[in-house]
Amino acid sequence: MGHTVLVVDDSATMRLSLKTTLEMHQFQVQTAENGVIALDWFRATHQPPALVITDIHMPEMDGLALIRELRALPRGRFLPILVLTTESQEDYRQEARRLGATGWLIKPVRGSDLLAVIDRVLPHH
């Protein structure tokens, strides 16, 4: 199996569809329902992910807060983080960019488009 991808989304359908798509392409996938669970796993794991795909609108801790927290950690400083969200308003996109998100994708994203973006942010996966 290849790199691990951390998928953070409060939607069960999103988590399952992303996990299935990525596993079909030899990625290992860790899922979390919100930023708090994702951050706890990220701090505890011995095998940090090569990529994070996160939603914005989530309970407990939203995607923007998660990006902020991850960027504050040494292991998360240069970690590629893709935001995969509904067609959010411009200020969310600007904030994600300011916090250091790597890319911005609007749901629904086709599998081939998602994989093409991953190819660009993880060229040697």
Binding site: D9, S11, T13, M14, S17, L18, T20, T21, M24, H25, T86, K107, P108, V109, R110, G111, S112, D113, L114, L115
Partner: peptide, 14 residues
């Protein structure tokens, strides 16, 4: 095709 179909499934979250 499955990946594309799974992508289309994201409509449910929207």
């Amino acid at each position: 095709e499955l990946s594309e179909a799974l992508g289309e499934m994201q409509f449910q979250d929207v």
